[in-house]
Write a protein that binds this DNA or RNA. Structure first.
Lengths: 246, 246
DNA sequence: GGAATAGTGTCTCTGAGACAGTATAGT
DNA sequence: ACTATACTGTCTCAGAGACACTATTCC
């Protein structure tokens, strides 16, 4: 079956015009919840085009790595972040003209992370920072996102909202162990809707494998209150029936 | 913002090693329901590699078209099929080695079609045909699918099952007008589970915009029976709550 | 005790599964 | 008449929303 002798970079059986120069990149939409605010990890571009504008972290895939590997590597290189817990491809964008330099098809990944520590900007990025999604999507803002990243971010956030409905992925947003209030805040922040604490509790605890009780309790907050129970993330699972958005 | 003078094919600002030779293709998973059987449109490859094996229709994207346009065009070229009703991108595959010739990243599209007429094989394909999904996925079969298309097909079918749960896309599988029995057969075939006719009816009719009553009735079948009411597809809509799979 | 947060119980309504019953065609 | 299919109604149970009530901490 293998006709390729010594792995040629330009294969013999292809008409060069059949595959015009195309670059493939991966872009990451890394979401986190900080103080009731949904934030996304952005980098400030250090090169043209769109120099000085905010962009999603990402870059070209290498020859010997899968798309998933490329996504993890690029994120690590540009922001020093390692996203083991949750990383999912969600769609590709390839309109001609989305990059003024050449035809670029990008595969977008979605990652959920809890409290991120220090973010160190790496190659090609002047700095990296967490930016409020609301701010990043504002149309009238002076620093619009680079490329078509506004569209990518919008679609990714909608996908994230949907994932909270159908899977137990919300636990990736919080550090372990966590309280159910913290987990509920994730839902309320991503969905932008308040949830009834009692009903939320019932839904989560009645879904086998969503969370695992540790038996321990946290210290109450500064203003007092009953010490809440602590939980660990369960095995990632689909919710059936889904968690209905209010 | 545009730095590119006269649209160069090899841009100046890029390190050539930064984007190794990569080709981008689109592949189509065209599903249809024929006589209680879920079938997929496949083409027999007329060229190496995998000559003579079944593959998903698809091909290289062109420089001036979007991914969506490439998908529609490739399908039309290879099979003479025009899929206006429903076409959705669902994910990209780009593992190194998935094509023995070179690095190929493919964007996979999912399409649902009703009764397909004659299928005419086009360029690069010896013939095109509808093949039972069950048969196409059999591991012990003599003609395995080309490339990693078995994985693509498996994932696409699972995606299709999920789409029936959350959207009204099932109507794309049937010719308009249709009876609720025909629509129910779509669900039963894709899910591989029988559904209660009465409860199915209640769910569909209680979802605003799922189907639209025409007021007309079909002729009863050969063995008699009450003439069923005819419906047209409504506006594509999300189902809330979702249609639960048994 | 009062405030604040965590957690429990309970009523009600919606929606879905099970399934019996009715309607209208062909033979 | 009988059969086959289409359609309707009804009972019941699970799950979710609303919301009152109890529990435990800090001040």
């Amino acid at each position: 079956m293998k006709r390729t002798p010594s792995k040629p970079r330009i294969p013999a059986g292809y008409d060069p015009r059949a595959f015009p120069p195309v670059a493939v990149t991966v872009d990451m939409v890394v979401l986190t919840v900080v103080a009731d605010d949904l934030q996304v990890l952005l980098v400030e571009r250090g090169a043209e085009p769109f120099r000085g504008r905010w962009a999603l972290p990402g870059g070209f895939i290498r020859e010997d790595e899968s798309l998933d590997e490329a996504a993890s590597r690029e994120l690590l290189e540009e922001t020093g972040l390692n996203v083991a817990p949750y990383l999912e491809q969600f769609r590709a964008y390839g309109n001609p003209g989305r990059d003024p330099r050449m035809r670029v098809v990008t595969v977008v990944y979605l990652a959920f992370v809890p409290n991120v520590g220090t973010i160190t900007a790496g190659t090609d990025a002047r700095r990296a920072a967490l930016v409020s999604v609301r701010r990043a999507l504002e149309t009238g803002t002076r620093k619009k996102l680079a490329f078509d990243h506004r569209t990518l971010l919008q679609d990714a956030v909608e996908k994230a909202r949907s994932l909270l409905e159908t899977t137990s992925v919300a636990t990736a947003f919080v550090d372990s162990p966590f309280t159910l209030s913290e987990l509920r805040t994730v839902y309320e922040t991503v969905w932008g809707q308040p949830l009834d604490p009692g009903n939320f509790r019932r839904k989560v605890l009645s879904t086998p494998g969503f969370v695992i009780a540790t038996g321990r309790q946290a210290r109450p907050g500064a203003e007092g209150g009953k010490p809440p129970d602590l939980y660990r993330p369960g095995k990632m699972t689909g919710l059936n029936p889904a968690f209905r958005r209010p």
